[in-house]
Every structure is written in C-alpha cells, then in structure tokens.
C-alpha cells in the first residue's frame, strides 16, 4: 500500500535535514505504529506524505499503490485515498462541520469521476458514523472544531476518516491530549475501520494508544531514520525502558 524508500527531507526555510533516509513499507490490512522521541521526524514524515508546504524532499520516494505521492497536490493525495488525522486539528470559524465534510467528500468523488452524494444520503451516512463516535447533532452543526474540546477534535478527525473512507490512514499523535475515555472512543472508531483493504500508520509517543489499537508492526524512529522494527512487544519494551536502551544499542 504505502512504500517509502530512502526518504530524505529538509526544511525549506532553514538548513536542517529532518529525514535522513526513511525506509518503510505498510501493507494493506495492517496497522503499523511509529514511535520515537520528540524531534525524531515522525510528524514531518506525516506532513511530507500528505503534501504540506515548507519541506523539501532531497532524495528517495514515497508511493501509494505505485502512485508517486510526492508529485501530487494534497487534494489529489486525499482523493487517491490518503488521510492524515492531525495532531492539532484546525478550527475554521463560520464553516459548518457538515458543510465542510460534504464539500470534502464531493470534491474527492468528483476527482475520482464519481457522482456527488445527495444531501439525504450524506446526512444518513454522517449520522450513522457519528453515532458510533458519540458525536451528537449539535456538534455536527457547529463550525469546524470551533469550541471543541481536545477529545471532540480528535473524534471529529476520526469521523472525517470514517466518512471519507480512505485506504491509507495516518494518525499523528491522535492520543495527545486525550483522557482514557476519549482515547477509548477514538480507538474504537479506528478499530471499526480496520479492514483488509485499508492500512494504518499510527504515530505516537506512548504505548498506551497501542493497547487499544493493536499494531501488527512497530517501528522506532530516531534522528530521521527508522532504527528498529519489531512486533507489538517492541512498544512494551519502550514503555518499560524508554528509548535510551534502543538508542544506545544503535549508537
């Protein structure tokens, strides 16, 4: 599904290399987790994959089902099935959550040459998805993320994911700022979307999210590279010993 080869990225505005050759393959139907200390390049990778400005790719490649992601506009990546759940979802005053979602869904459909969804079908779809995430009608009516609590914002991200039905989902520290109950809701939402045709890349600092979203593969990232890959037990090791041991091992 997602194939990253020797990806090297630096910041556009300052002379700083963030990714120094990342190799990563995520297969359809799998959940991969990336853990790593602050500043290791995890979020940068998620932004580069989804097409945010401000980064310069200096080497390597990233493809999704063989398509070159790095050549595409962000909206084209989304239409091709890539989704990034933001660490800090953005507030957009004056634009209703429903309007936003419908605009996004129809734009993606149009880009794929599909029919736009009717207002009635859309309403039905959103209501059904919102219910499992405990998002009420009032929250759907409000402007995008405005006045939402941290937990509500993250649930809203997962709602967008559920409605847009991407095939490659990247979750950037979706657990940050969540209490246990909120984390469980979010994890349930993600687990409901697990499917043999869909892959996940879960970026997190802590093991606790991975108690709820069980990964198939865990990678440790440090200083712009994947330095270790293993099974779920690797996350437990980090939880117990921190990153120090792994970093020392590699040094």
């Amino acid at each position: 599904m997602l194939e990253i080869k020797n990806l090297q990225v630096r910041l556009e505005d300052e002379d700083k290399q963030i990714l120094k050759g990342v190799d990563l393959t995520v297969e359809a139907g799998k959940v991969h987790a990336i853990m790593g200390p602050n500043g290791s390049g995890k979020s940068t990778m998620s932004y580069v994959l989804s097409g945010r400005d401000g980064y310069q790719v200096t080497g390597g490649s990233a493809t999704m089902d063989g398509e070159d992601l790095l050549e595409m506009e962000p909206e084209a990546r989304a239409a091709a099935g890539l989704f990034l759940a933001f660490q800090y979802p953005v507030e957009i005053p004056g634009v209703g959550n429903m309007t936003f979602l419908r605009t996004a869904l129809n734009a993606q459909r149009k880009a794929r040459g599909e029919e736009e969804i009717s207002a009635g079908d859309f309403l039905k779809l959103v209501r059904e998805k919102a219910k499992t995430l405990k998002i009420d009608a009032e929250m759907l009516k409000r402007p995008v993320n405005v006045g939402f609590s941290g937990g509500e914002k993250k649930r809203n991200e997962i709602l967008q994911m559920a409605v847009l039905e991407p095939k490659m989902c990247i979750l950037d520290e979706t657990d940050s700022g969540l209490d246990v109950d909120a984390m469980k809701l979010v994890a349930d939402g993600v687990n409901a979307l697990r499917d043999k045709g869909r892959a996940f890349l879960v970026i997190t600092h802590y093991q606790r999210l991975l108690d709820h979203i069980k990964p198939d593969v865990v990678h440790i990232m440090a200083d712009g590279r994947i330095i270790k890959t293993g099974g779920p037990e690797l996350a437990l090791e980090v939880e117990e010993n921190g990153y120090a041991d792994i970093l020392r091992e590699k040094a």
């Binding site: 989804s50 962000p74 909206e75 990546r77 989304a78 990034l84 979802p89 957009i92 605009t103 996004a104």
Partner: peptide
C-alpha cells in the same frame, strides 16, 4: 495551516 487542512481532506485549493 487551515488551507492545508482543507486540501488534505480533498478540497481543491
């Protein structure tokens, strides 16, 4: 940031 957020959901620029 808001522009990127919208585009990342598939909304053209």
């Amino acid at each position: 940031t808001a522009l990127f957020y919208l585009r990342s959901r598939g909304v053209p620029r």
